[in-house]
């Protein structure tokens, strides 16, 4: 007879026995050994019918296809730009995916993206050897001019975005800043200097307090106190140019 050894939503660590018996199936973050299912990474256990899987709680950002990310150009090559994505591997923007502009043969690529410049891009492909292709061609994808970049823990990105973008839209409304949250944990904030400061302060508050319940309400009160008017936390209407999905797991 199969039986669970843990409660749903409990924190599991590598090597912990999650279930005994053959009736459960190992999902992501777990593995089977004989008739046991054990965790193989730190996370929160989720039971989907027969499948036991874990939602990771820690770890570096691993690029996934169609993630919208914020990256930095670190090198210019003959076939494009090498970019840093806050991930274990650097990515590449091929020339054809760099810009809608026409790039003549032999052009100086630093005219389009220079070393050290940031951009909002989308991951188009991740190969088996973890070679990452990035595109900056598409709705909402562009080079970043002005503003500031802040970094948060990748696993806290869904908290910063909130349910269907409610958290990020609240920050945008309160501070009237442009905010783009990359799945890789880099966030671009642009607006009035004082408001930029407030937005960054709010983001770090979200990061620090994400584990205490009632986060949205607390952030709402905090923002209202700072700006002095009522902020509504509604779900963001997807205007197509900002990929702001929260929890995707």
């Amino acid at each position: 007879m199969s039986e669970l050894q843990i409660k749903e939503k409990s924190v599991v660590v590598p090597g912990l026995i999650l279930a005994k018996g053959m009736e459960f199936l190992p999902g992501q973050g777990t593995y089977r050994k004989d008739d046991l299912i054990l965790a193989n990474r730190l996370g929160v256990a989720v039971i989907d019918g027969k499948v036991i899987r874990t939602i990771p709680l820690a770890g570096r950002y691993m690029p996934k296809r169609s993630d919208v990310i914020i990256g930095k150009v670190i090198d210019i090559l003959s076939m494009g730009w090498r970019v840093q994505l806050n991930a274990p591997y650097a990515g590449l923007i091929p020339i054809k995916d760099g810009t809608f502009e026409f790039i003549p043969r032999g052009a100086d690529l630093s005219r389009y993206y220079d070393i050290g410049e940031y951009f909002v891009g989308k991951i188009t492909n991740v190969s088996g050897q973890n070679l990452i292709d990035v595109s900056v061609k598409g709705p909402g994808l562009h080079k970043i001019r002005g503003g500031r970049i802040v970094e948060v823990n990748t696993n806290k990105v869904p908290r910063v975005i909130g349910k269907k973008g409610s958290m990020v839209s609240m920050i945008k409304k309160a501070t009237s800043c442009k905010v783009i949250v990359g799945q890789n944990g880099l966030i671009w904030v642009s607006g009035e200097p004082a408001m930029e400061n407030l937005a960054i302060k709010t983001i770090s508050k979200i990061e620090d307090e994400s584990h205490i319940s009632g986060l949205t309400d607390r952030i709402k009160t905090f923002l209202e106190k700072e700006v002095g008017f009522t902020v509504t936390a509604d779900e963001e209407s997807t205007n197509g140019n900002e990929e702001t999905q929260g929890d995707r797991q």
Binding site: V13, P14, G15, G29, Y31, L38, N40, R41, L42, P56, L57, A58, G59, R60, N155
Partner: peptide, 11 residues
């Protein structure tokens, strides 16, 4: 290593 979120069989 576990805190870093790496995939590992056991500690």
């Amino acid at each position: 290593l576990a805190d870093a979120g790496l995939t590992m069989k056991d500690m």
